[in-house]
């Protein structure tokens, strides 16, 4: 399955969003995720089933004005 993570197309063999974060090396309580433009809550990542072509955003706090 191929998904797009933060704009980069990657091939993955995991089923859930939580597993994707692990295999891609994303960790930390400060991360927020969205799939196809909709928020995927932290508590729901384990049940969130990925599909081919999903667009995933992994965001974290950054400086801002």
């Amino acid at each position: 399955m191929r998904v797009i993570v933060n704009g980069e197309e990657v091939a993955v063999s995991v089923a859930t969003l939580a597993a994707l974060l692990v295999v891609r090396g994303f960790e930390g309580e400060w991360l927020a995720t969205a799939v196809n433009g909709r928020v995927a809550a932290n508590t729901a990542r384990g049940e969130y089933r990925l599909e081919d072509g999903d667009r995933i955003e992994v965001l974290s706090p950054m400086q801002g004005g």
Partner: peptide, 14 residues
């Protein structure tokens, strides 16, 4: 502050 794409490992945001 803002939110931006995290790099692998989450070190910047963390």
């Amino acid at each position: 502050l803002s939110l931006r794409r995290e790099t692998v490992g989450g070190r910047h945001g963390g």
